[in-house]
Amino acid sequence: MNPHPAGPAESDMPQQMPLRSLLAEISALTLHVQQLSRMAGEASALIENSQMPAPLDPEPLRRDARRQQDDGRAALEEAIMGIFEDVFGPRTDTLERQMSMSLIAEIGPAAFVQKVLWGEEISDIALTIALERMLPALEQLVEAHPQAFLQQANAVLGRFKGS
């Protein structure tokens, strides 16, 4: 038995620590905002005095990036269509081709190739078996466009290099 029962003041103590840490966080954030505001003012003054060029408008940059992405996707789709024609001939009514085209439309050409070459699910393995004759050509496609197929790996490697 506890000879001194906990009173209201003692039961409030654990709640005061998070409040103190919260106040410390708010104080630190306020300092960061003040520093950012000062830096923005300095940058604005440099731009107005023509000592520094104005920042680029991000919207045209985003449009260019989207256009490049769309162009890359179209080029990959065209390359995959060429592989289908080389391997299976010009027929578009084959089961392999119809299934593949709907999958490419759904997940994109890069993800399709990744599924065929490196997929681990049962459906991926079945797709790989169905398209077995295409594997060498798809591997060559990956070698020709590694940035399109290995983006995730490149991102992970970049984080390791940065560490």
Rank of each mutant, 00 (worst) to 15 (best):
I83F: 04
F112W: 02
M101H: 07
A105R: 06
I125T: 10
K115C: 11
P109I: 11
E96H: 09
A130P: 02
V116A: 03
A74K: 08
H145Q: 10
E106M: 12
M99Q: 03
L141P: 00
E139S: 12
M99V: 01
E85F: 13
L141W: 00
E106T: 14
A105F: 03
E78D: 05
Q151K: 07
V113I: 10
E120S: 15
V113S: 03
P136G: 11
T94D: 07
L131A: 05
L127Y: 01
A110N: 01
R73H: 14
F88H: 09
M99T: 03
V87R: 00
G82E: 12
Q147K: 13
F112N: 00
L76H: 02
A75M: 05
L138Y: 06
E132N: 14
F149K: 00
I129N: 09
I129A: 13
E85L: 08
F84I: 04
A79L: 08
Q151N: 10
G89Y: 14
L135A: 14
E77R: 08
S100T: 02
A126E: 12
F112K: 00
A75T: 06
Q140S: 15
I122C: 11
A130I: 05
F149H: 00
I125A: 15
S123W: 08
P136A: 11
I107Y: 09
P90Y: 08
L131Q: 02
V116W: 00
T94C: 13
R133L: 09
E132Y: 13
Q140C: 15
K115L: 13
K115Y: 12
G89L: 10
G119C: 12
Q98V: 04
L131S: 00
Q147V: 13
P109A: 14
V113D: 04
Q147M: 14
G108C: 14
K115G: 05
Q114H: 07
E78V: 02
E132Q: 15
F84S: 00
E96G: 01
A79E: 08
Q114C: 11
R133F: 02
D93E: 04
E85K: 15
K115W: 06
G82P: 03
F149C: 01
G108I: 11
A74P: 05
A126T: 12
P146K: 08
A130E: 06
G108W: 10
A137C: 11
Q151P: 00
K115N: 09
A144C: 14
M99G: 01
G89V: 02
M101W: 01
I80F: 04
T128L: 14
F84Y: 00
I125R: 14
A79R: 03
L76R: 07
Q114A: 07
F112I: 05
R133C: 03
I125L: 15
T92N: 04
P90K: 05
D124E: 06
P109Y: 13
